[in-house]
Design a protein around this nucleic acid. Structure first.
Lengths: 108, 108
DNA sequence: AATATTTATTCTACAAAATAGAAAAAATAC
DNA sequence: GTATTTTTTCTATTTTGTAGAATAAATATT
């Protein structure tokens, strides 16, 4: 397969979109909103850890915020490898989808 | 997760692209070419079977051809559910990638 | 100051998907 | 009839994804 699994790609995209607000709970909320699918807690943290181990993401501990509650946030940012992986994913998508009309069902 | 796994999505796209030439070996060649990744034989046939079971694809046995060799080809075509799944996948991709510049690495 | 509530991550057993490639099948070529 | 080619089938193993309880750490409430 390609270098990124599906969940990994979604998470890298979310990290990129969320800039300096990219931590577990926010990433999960964002992806549930965009995909319309319920994603379990593990569905975020498990691949996040994997992405750090693979060095597509770098993690750093957040400072306490004025809001109530919670363990200290663990923020993530893309590494250069992470950026390259996303660029590659985009290239593949564009090739696959390019020039295709809305797919339609040809019965027969 | 979403309704399609990564490999399933790639295969549906390949089936759609290949029209009446969508059978295992061709699908594999096409996806290796587009993704630049080596995909094992199982990496095609295992998800193909799953897609038929899930009714995103319909399979039909091919007639013998003038070319030499091979078991009779098993061709695939999208069902209406398969088309819908692809349309949904496209919608999600467009939302995720829309308006994003080429991702770049912000060190810091 | 206890207790409740909220926000957040960690952990881990289980399920689903992907990988790898040998084996089998079926055809033509020599 | 033996070799070669093209194709699918099969299946054990590894990798990924899922589910959600447990834990942690902060503020709010009484």
């Amino acid at each position: 397969m390609s270098i990124l699994s599906k969940q990994e790609e979604l998470i890298l995209l979310a990290v990129w979109r969320l800039h300096d607000e990219a931590y577990g709970v926010k990433i999960r909320k964002y992806l549930i909103e965009v995909t319309g699918c319920d994603i379990s807690i593990g569905g975020i943290y498990v691949p996040l850890d994997r992405l750090v181990r693979k060095e597509f993401l770098q993690a750093y501990q957040g400072e306490p915020t004025p809001e109530r509650g919670g363990m200290s946030k663990r923020y993530y940012k893309l590494t250069s490898e992470g950026v390259e992986a996303l660029q590659e994913a985009r290239r593949v998508h564009e090739t696959l989808w390019e020039g295709l009309p809305q797919p339609s069902f040809s019965s027969g």
